[in-house]
Design a protein around this nucleic acid. Structure first.
Lengths: 146, 146
DNA sequence: ACTTAATATATCGTATTGCGATATATTGAC
DNA sequence: GTCAATATATCGCAATACGATATATTAAGT
């Protein structure tokens, strides 16, 4: 297992992190300005962006956000309290809670998503460059590059 | 300001988040297995990947991690306690603290960076696709695509 | 040189948030 | 019909970042 790493590798990894952090930072700030903590914004997006036949539930949301189900429970509790999400017992399986966005959530998410698209279009070229660089710097590639 | 957004836009944004979250989740888990909280791992990477003439300091680290200087102070405090970083007063400006990685940190970071490179090479194609898709779906582009 | 402002780091208390452990309700398996 | 599995919920805890503030050092203005 070649774990030889050049200074350039570390630099590229650090730059990738820096770029990702800037995006996360932008995103969290934008959400805060809408009055939403970053995690709540991402939950709304996960609900809105979900394509599937069954309705969105706590468990599905947990999967999409990579958090524990009971953490999703708490997150949804906050969203319901703040008026962004409705939670209703699923008649087909009363263990499940079906989730839907309120108009308030749709409005906030529309604004947030619009500026996120703009920001992503700004960031994407740099990000793609960094990813491509990291892909190309294979540690063990043939001695004579084509 | 056209904030018309299609279902596909929301889906693409949600998928991008999901992919970023998977990377962050992978990264945090890998760091934990090395005995490092994710933030500490990223601090080590920021120090190691930093290219500059002046030595790394608390303030520079804060800039690279996009955290408040006093948060960087706390983070470095934990890293020093755990034996990953040395902190010394800079003789040129005694307000500054110069930071250096210990051998322990270099070892852990080498292992972590190696598996991160592997993971990134896995993830990069999907990420590049998602970013490209988001770039191309300009809401207001010319009516007749070339 | 002396006073004042700016910079760099540090400390303390607080708030957010996610998790582990655990509990309850509902459904499915046999 | 009983028992295991699933889905959600609750509680206490730990980690971490921040705001407010403090101290030390350097720079700027005169």
């Amino acid at each position: 297992m070649s774990d030889f790493l050049s200074d350039a590798d570390y630099e590229a990894l650090a730059n990738l992190r820096f770029t990702l952090r800037r995006f996360m930072d932008f995103s969290t700030s934008a959400a805060q300005e809408e009055g939403l903590p970053g995690q709540q914004h991402q939950a709304l997006l996960a609900i809105r962006g979900y394509r599937g036949d069954d309705p969105m539930t706590i468990g599905l949301l947990a999967e999409r956000l990579l958090i524990a189900p009971h953490t999703a429970t708490e997150l949804v509790g906050r969203l319901v309290s703040a008026g962004y999400v409705t939670r209703r017992s699923d008649p087909r399986d009363k263990r499940r809670q079906t989730l839907e966005l309120t108009g308030k959530a749709e409005d906030a998410l529309r604004r947030l998503s619009a500026i996120h698209l703009t920001e992503i279009r700004d960031l994407a070229p740099r990000l793609i460059d960094l990813l491509t660089e990291l892909q190309d710097n294979e540690p063990q590639r043939r001695k004579v590059p084509a």
